[in-house]
């Protein structure tokens, strides 16, 4: 996971934890006032909902494997790979001369990261072949 979303999630979880500590204190205080355990019931929370993994994520992984297989060596007239991918709702375009970084990218596909197109380009940036998408 990228660093910024991880930091954001950690901050949210810390605030959530502090609220649970306060709830613990409230429940104890109410029981002291009542002189016996107070019959609290817990309201439903989003964390109670059992989720189903999106089929799209599985399709993306499957599709990623196929795309990974389509990653071939560059032909003599080709100088680089150009990849377009969407990550956390943002579309990015990158050019790589080495296939290693692309293999990592293709292998990391998930619901939050999808490779849209993969092309080879020449020295002028013109598309020579479309390996995936397009």
């Amino acid at each position: 996971m990228p660093e910024v979303p991880q930091i954001r999630i950690n901050a949210l979880l810390l605030e959530r934890e502090a609220l649970f500590v306060r709830i613990h204190g409230i429940e104890r205080a109410a029981s002291v006032l009542l002189r016996e355990p107070y019959p609290f019931t817990r309201p439903p929370l989003p964390s109670d909902v059992r989720g189903k993994r999106k089929p799209a994520a599985r399709v993306a992984r499957h599709d990623g494997a196929a795309t990974k297989a389509s990653l071939r060596k560059l032909e003599p007239e080709e100088t680089a790979y150009r990849v377009t991918y969407r990550q956390f709702g943002q579309t990015r375009v990158e050019t790589h001369e080495s296939a290693d970084a692309l293999r990592t990218l293709l292998g990391a596909q998930s619901a939050q990261l999808q490779v849209l197109t993969l092309e080879t380009v020449d020295a002028n940036g013109a598309v020579k072949a479309v390996l995936h998408g397009g």
């Binding site: 909902v49 059992r50 189903k52």
Partner: peptide, 20 residues
Amino acid sequence: AYDRIAELETQVEDVLGETG
């Protein structure tokens, strides 16, 4: 406090892009 916790959990799932 529980209302706020529900908001926080929803935000976490929004960041992740997946619920549950």
